[in-house]
Computed example of a mutant assay.
Amino acid sequence: MFLRPAVLSRSLCTKDLQHLPNDFLTKVTEERCRQILAKNPLPQKASAGVLVTLCISEGVPSFLYTLRSSKLKGRHKGDVSFPGGKCDSSDRDVIDTALREAQEELGITLSRSTVWGPMKPITDWTGMVIVPILANIGCLEDLAAKPNSEEVESLLTLQLSLACTSSIHGYTCFRQRGRYAYTLPVFQLPGHKVWGLTAMMTDSALSLLFPGTYRSVLTGSRTQ
């Protein structure tokens, strides 16, 4: 199956969020999101867990990503990702998987209290069931992260307000045999691009955080 990208389109937000207050990630926001995510049961047969990491970076609500090391094997080396990986038999559930992988990649210990809840699972082209776990890890500067150099080349942040702007957020349409096949979001960072499953998770998190404001290209993303 051959898929190729078509035109990158932009202007997906209905309102300007550039003036998002620094205290946006309040208990009110957290409780609302926890109530919605509590409706998502953990799948019995998850393949991998990914921690969709919210944080405060330099006083501003942001996403935290890792730039995967170019030393890694596989097709995703050098990609921008959220911390995560395959489930292990020692993990109690997929939430433990996401927290364990975040600890291994970021060099920090995170408790389950940082987790807001599981988002809807994503099944990739290989059949793996990947569960995004939304979490707020707090002030990035206070965490003193020590990324694992074998897996992580550097840490990257994206302000939540900027993620919704037309200069950062767009989408790519894919064609198959000359016809439209599907559309995926993309987010542009300085020198890097957030695409694929990571962009889908980012898009779904923004839909949850900004209901009625953020316009997703993913069907059903608003329900999380």
Results as ranks from 00 to 15, higher is better:
A102F: 04
L72H: 11
D93H: 14
M119K: 01
G178L: 07
G138I: 06
V80M: 07
E101D: 13
A46W: 09
G117V: 06
G170C: 11
D96N: 05
W125G: 05
L67W: 03
L8A: 09
T223G: 08
L42V: 11
T213F: 15
L208A: 04
K86H: 08
T157C: 12
T29P: 02
Y180A: 09
L162M: 13
H19P: 06
I36P: 11
D91E: 06
P5A: 13
N136L: 00
T26D: 14
S11E: 08
K73E: 14
Y214V: 07
R32H: 14
Y182P: 03
M201Q: 13
N136C: 09
T202F: 02
Q44F: 01
L206Y: 11
V7M: 09
P185M: 08
T29N: 07
T123Y: 00
A98M: 00
Q176M: 10
G78M: 06
A163L: 09
D203R: 04
L110P: 01
L143D: 00
L106Y: 08
E30C: 10
K39L: 14
M201F: 13
P21V: 03
G117F: 07
G127P: 00
L12N: 05
S166R: 09
Q159L: 05
T198V: 11
H192Y: 11
E104I: 11
Q35F: 13
S154K: 15
A6L: 12
L189H: 01
I56T: 14
A145C: 14
A199I: 11
E30K: 05
F24S: 05
H169P: 02
E105L: 08
F210L: 14
G85F: 00
L208H: 04
P132G: 04
Q188W: 04
A205H: 08
G212K: 06
W116H: 03
P43Q: 06
L156E: 06
S111L: 07
D203Q: 07
R215G: 01
S111R: 13
G220Q: 12
S81K: 15
F82W: 01
S221E: 01
P118D: 08
V80F: 11
S70P: 02
P147M: 08
I36T: 15
A46Y: 02
Q44W: 02
A135C: 00
F174M: 12
P121K: 08
T29E: 15
I133T: 03
N136E: 07
G84L: 09
G74S: 07
L25M: 05
